[in-house]
C-alpha cells in the first residue's frame, strides 16, 4: 500500500484522510493494531515524522488510540466509525450535488440519473 500525494496539500492531512477512508471502508477493522510508526511509514512510503503527526491527529479524532507500550489501535467504537462514515458520505454527496446543480440539473433529474446509473459499480 503506497499513498499517492498531491504536493499542494499538507502531506499529513492527506495521510489522515487516507487512513480515515480505510477505517470507514473497513480495510482496518475495529480494534485492529496498527503497524509501528516506522513500519507504517515504510509501507506507505512516507516520512516517519509526517506519519507520526498524522497518527496524533487521528488520535484526536478518536478513531485511533494508543495503548501504552503496546502500540496504536483502531477504535472499538463502531458508532464513532459510522459517524465518520456518514459524515464522509454526506461530504461526497454534497460535492456531487453542487456539481450537478452547477450544470443546471434539478433534484428530480438528479434522482433519475442516480436511478438509471445506480447499478454501476
Amino acid at each position: 500500500m503506497k499513498f499517492d500525494f498531491n504536493n499542494n496539500i499538507p502531506i499529513y492531512i492527506q495521510i489522515v484522510e487516507q487512513i480515515k477512508t480505510d477505517i470507514v471502508a473497513g480495510k482496518f477493522k475495529p480494534g485492529e493494531r496498527l503497524p509501528s510508526v516506522r513500519d507504517f511509514a515504510n509501507e506507505t512510503k512516507v516520512n516517519p515524522n509526517t506519519m507520526q503527526k498524522a497518527l496524533v491527529e487521528l488520535e484526536e479524532s478518536g478513531l485511533v488510540f494508543t495503548e501504552r507500550t503496546n502500540g496504536k489501535f483502531i477504535t472499538h467504537d463502531t458508532s464513532l466509525i459510522n459517524f465518520y462514515k456518514q459524515k464522509y458520505a454526506e461530504e461526497l454527496t454534497l460535492t456531487y450535488l453542487k456539481r450537478m446543480y452547477d450544470i443546471g440539473y434539478s433534484l428530480g433529474e438528479i434522482s433519475k440519473q442516480i436511478e438509471q446509473l445506480g447499478g454501476n459499480k
Binding site: 504536493n7 499542494n8 496539500i9 499538507p10 502531506i11 499529513y12 492531512i13 509526517t50
Partner: peptide, 15 residues
C-alpha cells in the same frame, strides 16, 4: 516545515 508552508502560503513547496 513543509506542511506549515503549504498551509500558510498555499500550494506546493515547488510553487
Amino acid at each position: 516545515e513543509c506542511d506549515k508552508l503549504r498551509t500558510e502560503q498555499g500550494g506546493s513547496v515547488d510553487e
